[in-house]
Design a protein around this nucleic acid. Structure first.
Length: 149
DNA sequence: GCCAACGTTGGC
DNA sequence: GCCAACGTTGGC
């Protein structure tokens, strides 16, 4: 079973929000590389829930794919922040997932600490100026990050 | 197909 | 709020 990491702005959806909701839609991804990774994610896959664009960027917990990729409805909603005028019901290029809460870490693992781990040098997250919001995590990287909790 | 301009991401 | 890096757009 592959592992992943997905970024979310906690002001939009935080791991604490997901714990309260139990389950949520993961939408709004508007980058083809990230979308393609989402499309290869399967029900049951685990991912690190990363908090971005916030006071303490870092990995905040773990969640699980509850429903595999389907056309992202937010692309079709004119009032949505994620509306895409070029998308239609017949031809919607964007994908959403449903995700379920698994675990919230007692402390966020800060990006600054992740960057100090040699085992994580290959992870796009810690590479300079990487903006990829959905990425695969190897089982070795997964174990290395779990050990940092 | 090139590439400049522009918008976005996201840490700091 | 700044700004570097990156992706996308669109004229040519």
């Amino acid at each position: 079973m592959p592992f992943w990491l997905m970024k979310s702005e906690p002001a939009e959806l935080s791991i604490q929000d997901l714990r309260r909701l139990t389950q949520s839609r993961w939408d709004g991804v508007r980058n083809y590389q990230a979308r393609n990774f989402m499309r290869s994610m399967q029900v049951g896959d685990l991912f690190f829930f990363y908090h971005s664009s916030c006071p303490e960027p870092g990995i905040a917990g773990i969640a699980r794919v509850a429903r595999a990729a389907y056309p992202d409805p937010s692309a079709l909603e004119p009032h949505s922040h994620y509306f895409d005028a070029k998308a239609s019901a017949e031809k919607n290029p964007w994908s959403a997932l449903d995700v379920a809460f698994v675990e919230a870490f007692t402390q966020v693992i800060p990006l600054a600490r992740l960057k100090t781990q040699s085992a994580l040098l290959g992870l796009p997250l810690v590479q300079k100026a990487s903006r990829l919001s959905v990425m695969p995590v190897s089982s070795e990287e997964w174990a290395a990050i779990l050990a940092m909790r």
